[in-house]
Design a binder for these strands. Structure first.
Lengths: 210, 210
DNA sequence: ACCTGAACACCGTTCAAGT
DNA sequence: ACCTGAACACCGTTCAAGT
């Protein structure tokens, strides 16, 4: 007498992302995940290959969220700017996903599509393809690093920590008590990087654009 | 009849870093580490608090290696440039340490010292302390992100992957088959970031420097 | 077809016991 | 003082068994 399945692959993966967000990567175990779904751990293997398969699927969901609602505009600067902001926004929402993506980097089928799309915008705007690739990789590097520096749980600095480091202490006056990138820092850095890319990697602009 | 100890804290931590480099973070378990030291796992607890304590010590060793042989020069540009290059070089040597440092960031006593030192060089050169802090954080962000993008084990791209992404394929002509930052890209990006910092964050230079 | 219980080989950590 | 064996509560994964 066949009964309807109690769980499904989407249900498993949704719960996996929720578990990651709520309890962190340590809690994202097969047994804990099964428990949250009201089932025993072996039954998960009907829907995912193994624990690594769960991780891959979660990374894929993150990449999907990064690209959510995005459609290319045709302007190289808007494209790179948007890419960096989407990275930052998404990892702010899922800070526990940062270490996950780090040694299982965002290089899956879905992310290849988005790279191709961005590269397309740049080459269509007249960029040599090598320059376009470098611009994308530089922007991604900055976005990832800034996200990391902003999101990672910095150790709070005690007053003893600061007592022997006067310049560091001065830098933190009126700031949060951890030495950490803010959203304003991120914005400023992004402008700085894109200005640099415009200067060093963009093709010569036509007179009309001046 | 007291015998000499078979192991020591330095021996444990050395072996921990070696294990990380050779077998990856998964293999850095208390039991495996003990086995490599020719001892059983409970005896490790005489030398480290717990597994997290091992991780902290390894991160500290990495931070130490980042700063190895460094003495400040007095030039802000040399300082930031050197900092970024040391990050890059060190994580190239210890790629498995990347995810470790990522959610247990390089923010310990030793790293606070180096931040204070770099900030000192900048403020001594006349930088407002807020500008100095932002410059350091931006350089760190870029260095971390670039290191990550260069070091992370990118999935090799099959010819089918490339068939439907023509621009991505073109970007990889004559390159390695993964979409990944090279050392040349890193150098170029670093120049670009430091030029931006010079333009946007450095104090007005005195006429003599022109 | 889907789920469970039992089993196996792991893991971190504690603690009493050995020398 | 230092190390071990046994134990406990976990973990991923397989497989035969239940419905």
């Amino acid at each position: 007498m066949p009964r309807p399945p109690r769980i499904s692959r989407p249900a498993v993966l949704d719960e996996a992302l929720r578990t990651l967000d709520e309890e962190g990567i340590e809690a994202l175990s097969m047994r804990r995940l099964a428990q949250r779904l009201g089932v025993t751990s072996p039954s998960l293997y009907k829907y995912v290959r193994d624990r690594e398969g769960v991780f891959e699927a979660v990374v894929d969901a993150i990449v999907q969220e990064i690209n959510e609602g995005w459609s290319p505009t045709g302007s190289w600067r808007a494209e790179l700017d948007g890419m960096a902001r989407r990275y930052f926004r998404t990892f702010r929402r899922h800070p526990h996903a940062v270490p996950l993506v780090m040694h299982r980097p965002t290089r899956n089928q879905r992310s290849l599509d988005s790279f191709d799309t961005v590269l397309n915008v740049l080459t269509a705007a007249g960029w040599p393809v090598r320059n376009a690739a470098r611009a994308v990789l530089l922007t991604e590097s900055y976005a990832l690093g800034a996200t990391l520096t902003a999101v990672s749980p910095g150790v709070p600095l005690t007053s003893e920590d600061l007592a022997s480091r006067p310049t560091l202490a001065a830098a933190l006056i009126g700031e949060h008590s951890t030495f950490r990138l803010t959203e304003e820092d991120f914005e400023h850095g992004l402008k700085l990087v894109l200005d640099g890319i415009a200067r060093e990697l963009a093709p010569e602009r036509s007179p009309l654009e001046h």
